[in-house]
Structure formats: C-alpha cells, structure tokens
Design a protein around this nucleic acid. Structure first.
Lengths: 198, 198
DNA sequence: TGTACATCAGTGAACGCGCGTTCACTGATGTAC
DNA sequence: TGTACATCAGTGAACGCGCGTTCACTGATGTAC
C-alpha cells in the first residue's frame, strides 16, 4: 500500500521513533536492525531512509525521546509531591524497583544507553543527545536536593544519579539471581538513609 | 607457519584470552569480531576453534579473566594499606580517576561489561562469570567496610559498588565534556565523605 | 465539482560488506621404533 | 641417537547469513485547471 497520506506518514514516523526508543534501550543501537525496527513499526525496511538520514541519526532522536520520557515522568512526580523530600524519596524508590529493572525498554535511558553511547565515537550525534538528556535529569534532581548551596545540591544530584544508574546496571546484569534484588534493596536503603540524615 | 609446539600453542591461547579480555571491555562482545581478536593476538581467524568452542565461550573466559585482574589489583591494594579505612579511600580514589575512566580495556570489568552481560540471554555462560566476578569484588569491599554487623558491611559494599560502577559508566558516556569530570569529582567526594562519617 | 497528472510514501529486490563458523590443507612437532 | 611417520596448530578460502543502504517501481495522494 504505497503513497500514504501526509498525516499518516507523519504518524508512521512517530511510531518508528517510539518503537526505536524502546528497542534501542532494550537491545542497544547495534542489537536491533533497521529492518527489525521498521517491522516493529508495521512497515518494511525500504521506507526507512525516507524518514531518517541514517540509523545513527535515528539513534540520536530515539535517545532524546527516551530521556524526554524519563524527564517528564520525573517532573510529574516532583510536581505532584507535597514537598521536595517526599519527591526525592519517591523517585528513588520508584527508580530502584524491580519493575524499572525488568523493563529496560520503558525505563530510564541513562543506564539503558550509557555503555552504547560510551562506545560511539565522539562525532556521533547520539553523544550530544545523551549529554543533554543527563543534564535535564540532573536539573530535576538538583531541584529537590536539600540544602542552600547550589554547588552542593548539584554535586549531591550527580552522586545520586551515579548510584541510581549503577544500581540498575548491576541489577540488570545479574537479573534472575538473588544478588540482583540485593543490589536494589541495599542501594535503596543507603540512598534513603543518606537523604534522611540531611 | 602451521603446527607450532605445544608450549607455543598454550602461549597463543593465553594471548588470545588476554587480548580478548581487553578488547571485549573496550568494544563489547559484539563490537569486535573473531577475526579481529585473532589478528590482535597475531594469528589468523581459522585457528580460533582449535582453542575455543565458540565466541560465547571465549566471552565467558575473558569476563572471568577481567574480573580476576580487578580482584587481584584490589586485593594487592588492601594488603599493602596500613589499615582498612586507608584501603577503602585509596580504592575509591583510584577507581574514580580519569585514568580508570579513560582505559575501559584495562579497567574494572563491572562497568565495562555490565550492559553487554545484561543483554545476553540467561543461558549464556558469560552471565554466571559476571555474577561470580561481582561477588569476588564485593567480598573485598565488604572486608574493608567499617562496622561490626556483617549484613551492614555487605549492604554498604553493594551500595558503594553501585555508586562506583554508575559513576564510571556515566563518566564514560559523557567523556570529553566537563560533565564527565564533574561526575568523577562529585561522586568521589560524596563517597569519601560518607566513609569519613563512619 | 470533476478531470488529468505530477508527487512521493512505502515496497521489495539488490548492493557490497562483515560476521561466526567450517574445512581441506600444510608442514613442523612429537613419538614409536 | 637416528629415522619414519602420525599428529595436529595454524592457514586461508569458503559457507550461509544478516547487516545498512540504495533504487526502480507502484499506485494512492494531492494539486492545477
């Protein structure tokens, strides 16, 4: 069924991006092919280059979308919380849940794409997209840190981010073992204790 | 030059494993080919299956070796330190250095292979190798934690491990930017402050 | 509003390429006498 | 110690396959009149 309406073509592009954002997080940039991505979007592979310049270009777009998803979810949580401390503890608990560990495709982009991005060469567009994404998550975390000193809040947010990302990465690598649950539990209680102290 | 002596063949196998351990950490299990691994070891690709059953089998061996390298380095540091507290702070500082971030191939296997391992299916031999490796690093970290309660020491070691791994993963994904250095610095001072409190 | 036709979103075959793995072959090693 | 020969570590061509990307083609869409 060739020559679809302009509105439908735009919808198709939207679906490709959405599906890619999920599948790249699950399987990595090189773990899923253009043909599989297009197939998951209900299309055939040939039409891909009508929508995107290259697979690399789509990777950057998908990376940006994945971070936007996470940012929106974080921001919503912060807005709905009665105060900053509640927002922070709620965010930590949700992040370090079995649910988030088990669903790399719909979970935070930071742990899901980190190593893929690290292995891409500096000029690949996905690197800039990743950095922008991390900064936007950090900005939210900074906003709910305790304390008056902005530098301290940023440093605290960065350290928390590292812990959250590391815990998910380790829990996923050991998924299915007792250690995996232990990682989530121990990290969660450490972070929450640290927050409670302040 | 076919039919090399038995001793030389064993040395070749050793070189392949060593080179693979480095290159897998740098580029991931699927980021480097059998032919490239053999080439890096000074051989041609055809001889590979005389040494290993499959690329997956080598991945598990290389993963184990990479963790053994890290464990040996950690243990040496602990043995040479005047006390546990010094060992722990020294280990944290070395781990979160630009040097370690820049050298994925010779650095700790935990952050380098985590996402690769997470994406392998459960029955792949590399998953067990990764878990064993993590446990051996955790055992060392547990041994230099402050406090009398063994459960607390284990939980503390796990949380520290998550933070160390997350910081390196994030620093590598943002390598070349100011944020990358910021991640190392902020995480280091957070961990060291936390240790000093105890 | 209806007709004629240019546009172009999507199709599927094809491109060159690199992958993991296999295999017939080579010739030095290791062994039996 | 020397000789004859079986062994087998390493070579390089070849296998089937999947990859990212290109392209001639199709036929509904969108537009000019």
């Amino acid at each position: 069924m060739p020559r679809v309406s302009k509105a439908e073509a735009e919808k198709n592009r939207e679906i490709i991006e959405q599906v890619s954002s999920r599948l790249f997080r699950e399987q990595g940039f090189h773990g899923i092919s253009v043909a599989d991505l297009m197939g998951a979007a209900g299309l055939t592979h040939g039409g891909f280059y009508g929508h995107f310049e290259s697979k690399d270009a789509l990777a950057a777009i998908a990376c940006t979308r994945a971070f936007e998803e996470s940012s929106a979810r974080w921001r919503k949580r912060v807005d709905e919380a009665p105060d900053k401390a509640t927002a922070l503890t709620g965010l930590i608990e949700a992040y370090l849940s079995a649910r988030n560990r088990n669903a790399a495709g719909t979970g935070c982009a930071a742990p899901a794409l980190a190593i893929d991005v690290a292995r891409e060469s500096d000029d690949k567009p996905v690197r800039a997209a990743y950095q922008t994404g991390i900064e936007s998550l950090l900005a939210i975390l900074e906003g709910i840190q305790p304390g008056d000193d902005a530098d301290d809040r940023r440093a605290g947010a960065i350290a928390q981010m590292a812990t959250l990302v590391g815990a998910i990465v380790l829990a996923r690598a050991t998924q299915g073992t007792a250690l995996s649950n232990e990682v989530l539990a121990a990290t969660k209680s450490s972070l929450l204790a640290h927050v409670a102290e302040k």
